[in-house]
């Protein structure tokens, strides 16, 4: 393991107002970082800043060989767009000059069937849509996957499957994962590090050691009701 990402004194302002203040943390290769925090705490902004989409002050240092894959929060795709998963994936493959065999690989890796390629994106179920976004992110062989609440629009069984898929990808392709989540059970199950964010860094470290009731109370401004019964959940390797 070596240092894969170093963030030092990061401040991000939108319209003159600081959304993230003086944030520092670091991450090693192969880790799974969960970013948690209340609404408006700067989680999505942090992800976009790490992707290089927003201007910032401070330092963000990625390892030299980094290839980022991004799965955004639910996209309000126009249901009437005549664009299929295949159109979308082929467009990225051509735009980036990747080999065309990447499309089939990404579709299989994301747990989608070949048949679904011809379905317009507006007609996909929540779970299929999320997998399509993951397939899109997997084109170009990323070694870091950044996901913004990937299960926000999915029912519970689907949610578990998506988390399982992310975990599987991480294992198989030796990926580092940075994931924004509301779901603390996910954090305990899969995350190796957790970053509690509320504009500033409230906690950072391994979930079992870091997420004390007082930290969670401080973060969410009240006791987190399902904290105790999930604390004993078995962490996957």
């Amino acid at each position: 393991m070596f240092r894969f990402l170093g963030v030092e004194n990061l401040t991000v302002s939108l319209d003159g107002e600081a959304v993230i203040k003086d944030l520092s943390f670091e991450l090693n290769q192969g880790e799974n970082l969960a970013i948690i925090g209340p609404n408006g705490s700067g989680k999505t902004v942090l992800l976009k800043t790490l992707l290089g989409l927003l201007p910032y002050q401070g330092e963000i240092k990625w390892a030299e060989n980094v290839r980022l894959g991004y799965v955004p929060q639910k996209i309000d795709a126009d249901r009437h767009l005549p664009i299929t998963i295949q159109n979308l994936l082929s467009a990225k493959v051509r735009a980036l000059g990747l080999p065309f065999s990447e499309v089939a690989r990404a579709i299989t890796s994301a747990g989608l069937t070949e048949k679904i390629q011809k379905t317009p994106v507006g007609h996909l179920s929540g779970g299929q849509f999320q997998r399509a976004l993951i397939a899109f992110a997997l084109l170009g062989h990323p070694n870091v996957l950044l996901l913004d609440e990937p299960t926000a629009s999915i029912d519970e069984p689907g949610e578990a499957q998506i988390y399982e898929l992310i975990h599987e990808l991480q294992d198989k392709e030796d990926m580092t994962v940075i994931l924004v989540s509301h779901d603390l059970s996910f954090v305990y199950r899969y995350a190796t590090k957790v970053l509690c964010l509320n504009k500033i860094n409230i906690c950072f470290g391994a979930p079992e050691e870091t997420l004390t009731p007082s930290v969670l109370e401080n973060l969410y401004g009240g006791p987190r009701k399902y904290y105790h019964h999930i604390h004993n959940g078995n962490k996957h390797a």
Binding site: L68, P72, I75, L81
Partner: peptide, 18 residues
């Protein structure tokens, strides 16, 4: 057309695709 298709689907995703 490829860049336009990705941009139509999501401008944010297009930016992340450089």
């Amino acid at each position: 057309k490829d860049k336009l298709i990705i941009g139509l689907f999501s401008p944010e995703l297009a930016s992340a695709t450089k």
